[in-house]
Design a protein around this nucleic acid. Structure first.
Lengths: 209, 209
DNA sequence: GAAAATTATGAGGACGGTTTTAATCATCGA
DNA sequence: TCGATGATTAAAACCGTCCTCATAATTTTC
C-alpha cells in the first residue's frame, strides 16, 4: 500500500487525481491539503508518504521555495509538480529546486498514470515538451528566467515584476534610483528586451521566489 | 437520464467533475470537449443536452464571447461556468453574458453537487462570495477589471497587457500613438493607478478575452 | 591578485502619462 | 426626429519616468 499526498487548492483537481489514480491501482491511499502549510503539517506528522503531488501557485506558497522547503523536510519523498504552466523555464526551475517530476494538468489519463507509476519507483518523469522545444532548436542559451541573474539583480527584478517603479524599488532596497537603473538595464539586456513591461509579461507567470 | 457536456482543456478537471457527479447520481451521462470549437460541434450535433459545464480561459475561446455564442446556439441548455477565478467582477460578467450559474473550482463536493442539482432543475447558482463581498461593503464601484472599459479601451488594454508599447499598439490597431495615449490614460484612471506596469501586474492573471 | 558584483553619478534621448481641446460618429430617449 | 450623451480619434504641450552609456570607486568572491 502506497500513500500519496496531494497539495492543491482546487477540490476538483484533488478528487480528479484521486479518481484517476484509483482506477489504475487499488494499492493507493490519499492524503489531501489545500495549502502549503497544511501540506507541511501533514508531512511533519505522517511518516509513511511515498509520493507528493503538488500544484504550483498555492495560495500561501512561494512556489519554488515551497518545493525547496518540502525537500528539505522530507528529501526521501518523491515530489512531482502538477501544473497548468508548462514552459521549459518553469519545468527547469521546478527540477532545479528539487522536484522529481513534472506532470502537466493537460496530460491525458494514460500519461498521468504512467508518470505516477514511474515516480513511485523512484524514477523521474518530465513531459515530452521539455525535451522537444516547440519550434526552434535552442536559440536561447542566455535568455533564461531567474538564473544567470545576480543576487541583487534578482532582488530588483522581483520588485519590478510586482509593478514597482525604479523609485519605489530604490526606497524598498534602500538604494539610490541610479543604482536601480543600472540593475534594470543589466536585467533587460540579459533578457534581450528594452522595456520593463515586456520583461514583466514574459516572466510574470513564473511567480518568482 | 440527463446529459451533461463538460468543456475544459484539463483532463483532470473533466474526470474530476464526472466522478464527483457520478457519486451523486447514476442518472447522468457525460459528453466531453477540451476546446470551445469541439464543444460547439457537439452542441450542434447532440440534441439532448441538459447541462453544460465550461471553463473560462479555453485555449481557443474569447471567454465571455464563448458563453454568448453557446447561448445563441442553444439558449435552452443550462450553462454553468466552472472557474478558478471567482472575483465578483468575473462572476458578474459571466452572468451578464448569459450563463445560468458559476461554480468555483475550489467549491467542495457537497456544494458542487447541490449547485449542479439546482441547475438541472433550471435554477441559478452563484457562490456565496458573490453575494457577500469579502471585506468591505462595496468600496469599489469603479475599479473593476474588464467591465466599464469601452470596446476600444479593451483592445488597447489587451495589447498593453502582453507588453506592447504605445507605438506598437498604435501600429497593431492602425491608430496614432496620440490616440493610444488617450486610451491608456483613460484605462489607468479607471484602475486608479498611473503606471502601466502596475496595471499589467494587477490584471495579468485574468487571462483576458 | 584578478574578476565579478555592487553601488553610484551624469548626460541624453526615448517613452510614458496628463491635460486640454476638438472633430466625428453612434445611440438612445424624449 | 432632435438633441444629448458617450465613444472614438487626434494633436500639442508638458513633465516625469525609463533606459542606455560611460565612468568609477568599493566590496566580494575565487
Amino acid at each position: 500500500m502506497r500513500t500519496v499526498l496531494i497539495i492543491d487548492d482546487h477540490h476538483l483537481i484533488r478528487t480528479g487525481i484521486k479518481n484517476l489514480l484509483n482506477s489504475f491501482s487499488q494499492e493507493l491511499t490519499f492524503l489531501e491539503a489545500s495549502t502549503l502549510s497544511q501540506g507541511m503539517d501533514i508531512l511533519a506528522r505522517e511518516s509513511k508518504i511515498d509520493l507528493l503531488l503538488m500544484d504550483l501557485m498555492l495560495p500561501d506558497a512561494d512556489d519554488f521555495e515551497g518545493i525547496k522547503s518540502i525537500k528539505k523536510l522530507r528529501p526521501e519523498i518523491a515530489l512531482a509538480v502538477v501544473s497548468a504552466h508548462e514552459t521549459r523555464d518553469i519545468i527547469r526551475n521546478v527540477i532545479e529546486n528539487g522536484a522529481d517530476g513534472f506532470i502537466p494538468k493537460t496530460a491525458d489519463a494514460e500519461v498521468f498514470k504512467s508518470a505516477v507509476a514511474l515516480m513511485l519507483e523512484g524514477e523521474v518523469y518530465l513531459p515530452r515538451s521539455y525535451y522537444q522545444p516547440s519550434d526552434e532548436p535552442e536559440i536561447e542559451t542566455a535568455s533564461n528566467p531567474i538564473d544567470n541573474l545576480t543576487k541583487r539583480q534578482l532582488d530588483v527584478f522581483k520588485l519590478m515584476c510586482i509593478g514597482y517603479s525604479n523609485k519605489e524599488i530604490g526606497q524598498q532596497l534602500e538604494l539610490s534610483e541610479s543604482t536601480i537603473k543600472t540593475h534594470i538595464s543589466a536585467i533587460l539586456r540579459h533578457y534581450r528586451t528594452n522595456s520593463r513591461a515586456k520583461a514583466i509579461v514574459q516572466f510574470q507567470q513564473l511567480h518568482l521566489p
